[in-house]
Design a protein around this nucleic acid. Structure first.
Lengths: 224, 224
DNA sequence: CGCTGTGTTGACGTGTTTCAATGCTCGTGG
DNA sequence: CCACGAGCATTGAAACACGTCAACACAGCG
């Protein structure tokens, strides 16, 4: 989601519909759904999944833990995002995905044959966007904290707007620690950056409630 | 975005016409090749390509320049690597790719139909690896310089070994400036890191000629 | 020979991390 | 209803790594 929007055209979703019996399944229309509570995993890194997913409501984060135990936040995902394309090519998941709040997830149990159908377009496009997203993350990572935060907030703002929400009145799905890890900062640095923006009248910050008071200044800080 | 889809359909149509005689696989041996001199571009970011490529000999680098003019090195590519998968989905290339030395490139003028064939696997797998690679880059970017260099050298060493070359006697395809940019460091910092390793007897450095004297120490520095 | 590009080395400033302490929020149980 | 504790967020001070600026070394090459 954040600078990610791996959004589908809906073809892939409808391509599924052959459902296995598993607990918690809910059928709306023809697509099976899964409800996740905050803290539930959609899948874990290394797992060989058989299904891909589309987020319907709620937010999730993807992350992976490295040999040294460090946890890396790779992305936030909201309504419309596609997750778990690795299942389509029989590869282990590259990251773990966990719900940050109550989520409704549409299951796209794509048969391997999906590779030969229209569903592919979405698959390859989804991967394309993922690469785009990482490239952007990499770019962000090489800028000072103020800019990183500015870019993140603007991205998030844009996405919220596209989802019909307010672009200036944000509720972050991540807590400080996770957001810091996502941006590649120490939590303290992130906190200081928030307060600096607040002192400058650019933001109004209250825990995860962020108001963008001066979008122009944010754009400026993000390098246009 | 809509343009992309339209284009995709167009490609599919024209492709299926000429692909009657083309059985899905990417054929090795019969495929057209392209020779690149050092400094030649294979393609540029933003271009809508119609072909994908496989490196046969030589090394290339992929990079992109951002709005602010900063150049970001995204990767090095050697024999066996697949490039330009964006062409398959009618998307603009995400990065520019330029030859670092004389290269022989196999052209895989993939019809859109290739998506339905075995040939796809290598390309989707290539994208999968690309995501994996970026994920790793991101991870590297958040570690101190010594560790970044250690990880890079070990990665490169492994790749050279897989290609049948010596794993301890390396010739870097990148100059200092590019390598620094690849690792997200200032050239000076990279240089200092090299000399520090040299003083410790871990490496023997002579411009782009690197000898790994103490692999264990490098592994240690890379966090195992 | 002097030029230009590239790599190295030193001194310095600064943004970020780290460590430690304090405040805040919220859920739990008395 | 309030008190308490646990986790989260903030703040401050000090150490550090890295980037920047500048000078210099060394190569290839006109």
């Amino acid at each position: 989601m954040t600078q990610g929007l791996q959004r589908l055209k809906g073809d892939a979703a409808s391509a599924s519909a052959r459902s296995a019996a598993w607990p918690g399944r809910i059928r709306i229309g023809h697509s099976p759904r899964r409800i996740l509570q905050a803290g539930d995993h959609l899948f874990q890194a290394g797992e060989f999944g058989t299904e891909s997913f589309i987020v319907r409501t709620g937010h999730l984060k993807s992350y992976c833990v490295h040999r040294d135990g460090e946890e890396q936040i790779l992305g936030m995902h909201g309504p419309g995002d596609v997750l778990g394309f690795e299942a389509l090519i029989g590869k282990p998941a590259l990251s773990s995905v966990i719900a940050l709040e109550i989520c409704s997830i549409e299951v796209a149990e794509l048969p391997h044959v999906a590779l030969r159908t229209n569903g592919t377009e979405s698959l390859v496009e989804g991967m394309y966007r993922e690469i785009q997203r990482f490239s952007r993350l990499l770019y962000m990572d090489r800028h000072p904290a103020e800019r990183r935060l500015a870019e993140f907030l603007l991205d998030f703002s844009r996405e919220e707007q596209m989802r019909g929400k307010s672009p200036v009145d944000l509720t972050l799905p991540l807590n400080r620690r996770d957001l810091a890890r996502f941006l590649g900062l120490a939590p303290e640095t992130l906190s200081r950056t928030f307060t600096r923006y607040q002192e400058q009248g650019v933001l109004s910050v209250n825990n995860r409630q962020i108001h963008i008071l001066d979008p122009a200044a944010l754009n400026e800080a993000a390098g246009e």
